[in-house]
Design a protein around this nucleic acid. Structure first.
Lengths: 331, 331
DNA sequence: TTGAAAGCGGTACCAT
DNA sequence: ATGGTACCGCTTTCAA
């Protein structure tokens, strides 16, 4: 069934049916009603490909993320999808893993599907040296990056102020007189680098230096973090006083290590997570965590995109503030 | 740039270019090389809509789930997306929430985007009374349901044997002589009903009856489960001996309650989760959990779909077995 | 207000 | 092996 069938059933031309379908152009109320009733009766749905061929768009946005099974990205994707749908856009999901070549391929793939825009979730896309692939692609469609930013035409970044988030909360420990503070992180990304700088800056502010041995990179799993923390606890003569992490899942591992070492929390050691995810609420004792507002970032990203579509003036970088959610692993 | 441009640049007809692009029909090696080099040189990408118009497909599968921010669904969607991509299909994600009308709308929406199939993730789609919407839609495209099943043409179900999973593990508690066993669940779905029946069946097997007051429905959050468990712990004169749950997130709540009540785990009380998710590993003590093999279910679902596409003979219901992953909350 | 017809960019059948 | 062309189903311009 196509627009010709509807047109002949209704005794009008396909042009009129098209006008009715799209609600533009002048159609008499009477004709409109009539055509609509035929469409309803026949259960007709316009062919999206034919429409796309004419308009070169089927209102679809590509979402790129390294891994939706990660609880943080899952929340972002969930929020984005909902928000996009409300604006009449569908979500084409593309999980790339960590391989650079796969990512480039994914962007090509989305482009070949003629998506209207590409949303980059997570700060794992920017390369140190060469972002030409993204820059090239941005000539075709707008890009919105969540937790990352490239200063180039048609690219927008919505980021959380990770630097100050970590700096301020590390400072709180320092102000309590603590010095043996470990930093556990898992990724060397844009946002990862900001967090680490924030950690160091807190020490610099007080004209102190952080102990390089206490800054530890480990895999993205509670098990890895647990192991690293146990190592630090055993090795250090002077006991560890606090652990700052770049992700709740690492904080959970640190927490497990501290508990199994018989330490009282938060009395003997304080621990702070990042993302304020479900993991923080599930930890025992419940984890104090820095909320970097993933839902807000996601909503803002979509809103920004919609504004770009509408040719509104949009600032190309938006920075939001994180917020500490205090639970039971800090004083 | 379109196929005409390529054709004229290469000095051949569009038919030849099309043949080269699709790798079918006879094209001389020489011509093929030449056309390919022009395509490469110009950076040409075929228009997906034009192709879709002709073929009525752009190799895209719709994924419907109530909520990807849920860690379990996120894992499923992640696995599905990867597996689909390997087979050359893209994923159109559609999160419906719990509203029935929204779900129906979503199916219509996917259909209007001319997806090649629809994957239903989670057993939240089947209604008690009326599944006509799914049955109708299945006239157009194949459906694959994960953890759910409707016995109808063009609908395939990949399910975990939730009934026996819960029955067997509850039986283990009963065989240890425990009788004060609570069951915490959050959803009244197909799979939810099976789990609950499994719990009851374990008692029936021993000619006993489970205490109805110990079968408690609560919201899908650790906080809700914690509250309900605390209530049970306070109320019961004879102490609770074990808690079986339909989801790790509830088990975590139960665990928090038990710990805060000063109980020794697993000595005083045993707790068992479901899904074997990251939450089980993050809990303290680490949670024993029933692994219902979400990755395997997901992979099997996609493989099934690919077989359906290839018109292979496919059984319309596949049942997989769960497996207990023992950690520290059971003896 | 309505209709006729020209694209949009491919695929595939039928000739050659 | 290659080319010509009808066709897929819609949008939109131009004329009436």
């Amino acid at each position: 069934m196509n627009i010709y069938d509807i047109a002949s059933k209704a005794g009008v031309s396909i042009a009129t049916v098209s006008r009715v379908l799209n609600g533009k152009g002048n159609v008499s109320e009477k004709t409109k009603e009539h055509v609509l009733s035929i469409i309803e009766e026949m259960g007709y749905t316009p062919n999206i490909f034919a429409r796309g061929l004419g308009l070169n768009s089927i209102k679809m946005v590509g979402i790129l993320c390294s891994d939706v099974s990660d609880i943080y990205y899952a929340t972002a994707v969930s929020t984005i999808e909902k928000e996009l749908r409300q604006s009449g856009y569908d979500s084409l999901l593309c999980c790339t893993g960590d391989n650079i070549e796969d990512r480039k391929k994914s962007i090509d793939l989305l482009l070949s599907k003629r998506v209207d825009a590409i949303l980059l979730v997570g700060s794992t896309f920017k390369e140190k040296s060469d972002n030409s692939h993204i820059l090239d692609a941005a000539k075709n469609v707008p890009f919105v990056m969540i937790n990352d930013f490239i200063d180039a035409p048609n690219i927008y970044g919505i980021v959380c102020d990770d630097f100050n988030a970590v700096r301020e909360n590390t400072s709180i420990f320092l102000e309590q007189g603590l010095r043996r503070i470990a930093y556990l992180y898992d990724a060397d990304t844009y946002s990862g680098a900001l967090k680490l700088s924030g950690f160091r800056a807190a020490f610099t502010q007080l004209n102190t230096l952080s102990d390089p041995e206490l800054i530890v990179r480990c895999a993205h799993s509670p098990e890895a973090a647990r192991e690293q923390t146990l190592r630090l606890l055993q090795k250090q003569k002077r006991r560890l006083e606090a652990v700052v992490t770049s992700d709740d899942c690492l904080a959970v591992g640190a927490l497990q290590a501290a508990v199994s070492a018989g330490l009282q929390i938060p009395h003997d050691i304080q621990i702070i997570g990042f993302n304020n995810s479900l993991l923080a609420r599930c930890a025992n004792p419940a984890l104090t965590s820095i909320d970097n507002k993933v839902e807000l970032l996601s909503v803002t990203a979509v809103r920004t995109l919609i504004d770009v579509f509408a040719h509104k003036n949009v600032s190309n970088k938006i920075v939001l503030s994180a917020e500490l959610v205090k639970r039971s692993t800090t004083i």
